[in-house]
Structures are given as structure tokens and as C-alpha cells.
């Protein structure tokens, strides 16, 4: 959260920009190294189910998380480790969900990227693409109803989700209700293995905004500075009452759909194109060039993060797994109305 970063050090604009970049870079690096750890644990057979990485999308994702404030709403998707951490998720909760710890927010009932804390405005995704957008609308709708102003909500999707009915319905709904929604589309060129020419026929996904009466910006998703600026401005416009905002970022998914996916269908020309730049490397080079961080500091930071991740994994591996004999097996909150249990 940007505010947290800035409040900690009220300084000049230039210094503030440096602080934000450094903070954003730290979350990106943390997300990348955490993803690497999950991939390693997956290959070692320590994770049940799939592992889904955000490699190549950290600059865009962190810009969302860092631009939101406490009290805002965030519905990340599968490649948003950086945004989640910047929004306030702990490494521990991420690891607990991937390893199925009963102490985690999902208590082994759901795993991997399906995690969140709705009571804190951090919405846990369902797998059905586009489905979280109208849920964010609903929180914002209720806030307006309760006369709570000044908060916004962000939802992240990929270009694949723009083909769903849910995306259309929700963006149209946000436009009709003029809700402070920021919808981030990461066009990472492939929805699983499907290239963009099988996904949409318009020149740019930004063209869709006009149909919903929604403001739109496009951004180079490999450039942290550009992402911070464009996403930050979209968030600010929504917060000022400017209505829903669409942000379309162009980038390349630098990994498979999941770690099970060899990713061999990606057009090799894309790897060589500007889209194929690694946003983490680009951000690091920028920080070094600006002398906002010394090379030695980057190396220290990396070691600090690796230690943090290793400690979290070691702790979670000692935590209890969910116990089917302790599990309540209640699907509804009204205890006595659950079917098939002895309370009835």
C-alpha cells in the first residue's frame, strides 16, 4: 500500500518516488522469490494441486497493490503474488495456503492462489474468470449505500477473461452505477495456450472501454515506472469520483499457465520482443541507474527475502494439517440447518 510507504517517510516528491520504487521493487522481488520457492516445492512433490506463477507480471501487479489503501477492496487473480503482498498479505498466509496449513486463512479447504480475507477487503478468487469483478462492484455499491466515501476497489484479470459474459456484465454494471472500480487487464498474450488472435478481434482491448462508458489507459506492463504512474492515476481518478477505470497492460507471461505446463507453444519471437523483457530485471536496472539502490543493497535484500521465505516455509511445515475428524463439514453458517450432521 502506497500510503503506508509514504506515511512512513514524508519527504520531497523525488524522494517519495524513490521510496515507492524501492518498496515496489522489494515486493516484486519477494513475489518472484516466493513463486520460485513454490515452484521448487511443487517439483519436490510438497504441494498438492497446481502452482501458478506471476513471472513477468510483477510490475503491473505490484502497482495495483501499492496504489490501494487500507479500507480499499482488492480481487487479485492467479498471477498477482506481488499485488497481494503489496496489499498487505503476509508471506506466512501465502505459504500456509499453498501447503494447506490448518492455521492459514483457507484452512486447507482451498489452496494455492485461492486465498483471501474478505473481512479485510481482500477477496478470495473463484476459478471462474471474470466472476470477481461484480463482487468488487457489490462491495463498492454497499459502501455507497452506507455513505462510506473515498474507498475504491480493484479487480485483476487477464485478456482471456475479457471474453467472458461475466466481464461484460460487471464492467457494464460498474459503468451504469459509476462505481469506483479499477479493472486491470494483463494482456499476457496467452490464455493458457490460446493466443490473442483466437481471443479477441478488436485492435486493442482498450477499445472495449468505450462500449461501457468507462475511462481507459494502456501501459507497458514490463515498465514498473509506467505501471506505477498509470495504475496510480487510475486509482486516484476513481477515488476522486471519476467512475470506473480500465487499465490494459501489454506484457508476456514468462512461465507456463501453471508449473505443470511446459510453455512450448509461446511464439519464440515474443521472447525477443520488448514484451518479453523481464519486468523485475528492468526495474532493478532502473533502480541501479538512478542510484536509488546500490548493487550491494540488492544482494542483501535478496538474502533477507530468501531467509524470510525459508523461515516461513519451515514454520508452516511444522504446522498442523487439516484433520478430517475435526473438520465440521458445515457448508452454511446456520449450524442447525446443515444437512447430514448430528445437530439436526
Amino acid at each position: 500500500m502506497l500510503q503506508t510507504v509514504l506515511d512512513a517517510s514524508p519527504r520531497t516528491d523525488a524522494a517519495a518516488a524513490q521510496d515507492v520504487h524501492v518498496a515496489a521493487y522489494r515486493f516484486m522481488l519477494l513475489a518472484r522469490l516466493l513463486d520460485d520457492k513454490f515452484a521448487a516445492l511443487y517439483r519436490a512433490g510438497k504441494i498438492h494441486g497446481g502452482v501458478f506463477l506471476g513471472r513477468g507480471q510483477e510490475a503491473l501487479s505490484v502497482s495495483v497493490g501499492i496504489s490501494l489503501k487500507k479500507g480499499d477492496v482488492f480481487a487479485p487473480l492467479i498471477r498477482d503474488a506481488a499485488g497481494r503482498l503489496a496489499f498487505g498479505e503476509t508471506v506466512l498466509d501465502a505459504v500456509r495456503t499453498y501447503l494447506g496449513s490448518s492455521l492459514g486463512p483457507m484452512r486447507g479447504r482451498d489452496g494455492n492462489v485461492h486465498r483471501g480475507k474478505p473481512q479485510e477487503g481482500y477477496l478470495p478468487m473463484v476459478s471462474h474468470l471474470g466472476a470477481m469483478i461484480s463482487v468488487v462492484n457489490g462491495v463498492l455499491f454497499a459502501r455507497r449505500y452506507k455513505k462510506i466515501s473515498g474507498t475504491v476497489g480493484a479487480a485483476c484479470v487477464g485478456e482471456g477473461a475479457t471474453s467472458t459474459g461475466a466481464f461484460h456484465e460487471a464492467l457494464n454494471q460498474a459503468g451504469v452505477e459509476k462505481l469506483p472500480l479499477i479493472l486491470i487487464v494483463a494482456n499476457n498474450q496467452y490464455a493458457y495456450s490460446t493466443p490473442t488472435h483466437f481471443q479477441f478481434a478488436c485492435d486493442s482491448l482498450a477499445d472495449k472501454a468505450a462500449g461501457y462508458g468507462v475511462e481507459v489507459q494502456t501501459v507497458d506492463g514490463t515498465d514498473l515506472g509506467a505501471c506505477l504512474k498509470v495504475v496510480g492515476e487510475a486509482v486516484a481518478r476513481a477515488r476522486r469520483g471519476g467512475g470506473p477505470q480500465l487499465v490494459v497492460a501489454e506484457l508476456l507471461r514468462l512461465c507456463g499457465h501453471g508449473e505443470h505446463d511446459p510453455n512450448d507453444y509461446i511464439d519464440p519471437k515474443l521472447w525477443e520482443s520488448p514484451l518479453g523483457r523481464d519486468c523485475l530485471k528492468v526495474a532493478e536496472e532502473y533502480l541501479l541507474r538512478q542510484k536509488w539502490m546500490a548493487p550491494s543493497r540488492v544482494a542483501i535484500l535478496r538474502n533477507e527475502i530468501i531467509r524470510e521465505i525459508e523461515e516461513a516455509v519451515a514454520q508452516v511445515q511444522r504446522e498442523p494439517a487439516p484433520d478430517p475428524f475435526v473438520e465440521q463439514w458445515h457448508s452454511i453458517a446456520t449450524g442447525h440447518l446443515n444437512e447430514g450432521n448430528e445437530e439436526r
Partner: peptide
């Protein structure tokens, strides 16, 4: 007034909005 609201013809988004509002403590 302000509590009985027309929606677009969007059943998916209608229910999604209700879920979000319920998370925020409403009873849609």
C-alpha cells in the same frame, strides 16, 4: 427511496453484486 434498485439485464453481475454487498454486511 434508494433501496429498491433497477439492474441491467445481467443475472451474473446481479448475484455477484449481492455477494459483494453481503461481504460488506448488507442483506440484499
Amino acid at each position: 427511496p434508494g433501496r429498491v434498485l433497477d439492474s441491467p439485464i445481467s443475472e451474473d453481475a446481479m448475484v455477484g453484486l449481492a455477494v459483494g454487498a453481503a461481504i460488506e454486511g448488507m442483506r440484499p
